[in-house]
Design a protein around this nucleic acid. Structure first.
Lengths: 194, 194
DNA sequence: CGCACCAAACCGACTGGACGGTACGTTGGA
DNA sequence: TCCAACGTACCGTCCAGTCGGTTTGGTGCG
């Protein structure tokens, strides 16, 4: 249907502009012009500018959660699962680099109830990852002399930072970066070799 | 002198508000009210709202550069130097957590010439760090099978991410976090034990 | 098939308020 | 008397959101 097309084009334009200019410095007028629609059409599908921002977060969070759940459900040796999760998160983050830029840069622009929701869903995601690390610790493959939240932060920092340095046109491919970052992380958190 | 006091109070208030609310959503009126001065007084010391933001960056960059140069100048075995640099960067970043928040969140709000300057000075800083890693690689203590820019990004990601999770009132002390993150990083980048 | 009807989709000029910056006046110390 | 250090009232601009109106596409009816 064509009606959805309008909403999609607006969302895409908003993502692009938010990523390059920032949320606050992007006017609704700019978005609708870039999307080739009118303000009236946009406000027919979205209640506010904030809606556009939240849509980006919602999509990103849902996607990450789905990926994580799927990999965890597949099972296997804990280190393999963690490795698969890390590689996937990095690759997905590279696939959605603009979303990542907006995600971390403009989170504080969300209105209160939505900010709470995003924070909550992100915490759940981190907790699920932390549970994996815990399994690894229980199995004796991951070190226990460093607080687990710090290990979690140590990994997600890499994911977070991707949008600050990675370029698809750069020398490294998505897969290479994912595997290299994952390996750096795993090497850091494994129990010292006996 | 009292005149400097006004500028200082404005800077402090701006930093606080920028860190908690973001640059774009903080009005000059809010800043001067929080600082207990008037708009006229503020515009006597600063040319624009942008000046306030840049002052934060300038201070931060100068401080980091000074620390780095000092540690490098002290010399020593390359791994010890890198370790000292990493620990110091993390500790300093924790000391200046609000600055860090503003730094990464609002960099894109700087006007063009200043954004260029900040980017430039940051690049110099990264290059100096990369040179240290290179020394370590030449000395055979750091791995060479991963692109150096990725190693640099891997470290600075942790620094960057601090303002997203670290709380001074949390369980971990500044020094602990600095040493633990540094060790995770070093363990990742060292040449595999023979 | 054609016509009447309606709801959803869409248009775009307009509003009301906020905000960065300025113009100009005032003060107080040297 | 002069100048730096302020204070205050105001201006021009911009922008999110609105609202009355128009178009369009589908549906039931004669």
């Amino acid at each position: 249907m064509k009606s959805t097309n309008v909403a999609d084009r607006v969302t895409a334009a908003a993502l692009d502009l938010f990523a390059t200019q920032g949320y606050a410095t992007t006017s609704v007028q700019q978005i609708v012009e870039a999307a080739g629609v009118t303000k009236g059409a946009m406000y027919h599908y979205f209640q506010s500018k904030d809606d556009l921002l939240f849509a980006i977060y919602d999509r990103m969070l849902a996607l990450q959660k789905a990926h994580l759940d799927q990999i965890v459900a597949a099972g296997g040796p804990v280190e393999d699962v963690v490795r698969a999760v890390c590689v996937d998160v990095v690759e997905t983050s590279i696939d959605f680099l603009p979303e990542g830029t907006v995600f971390f840069r403009s989170m504080h622009m969300l209105t209160e109830p939505r900010l709470k929701e995003v924070t909550q869903r992100r915490r759940e995601y981190h907790d699920e990852f932390a549970a994996l690390l815990r399994q690894g610790q229980d199995a004796g493959v991951f070190r226990t002399d460093v607080p687990r939240p710090l290990l979690v932060a140590h990994f997600f920092s890499d994911v977070h930072y991707l949008s600050h340095w990675y370029s698809p046109t750069g020398p490294e491919t998505k897969t290479e970066v994912a595997q290299q970052l994952t390996e750096l992380f795993l090497r850091g958190i494994r129990t010292p070799a006996s």
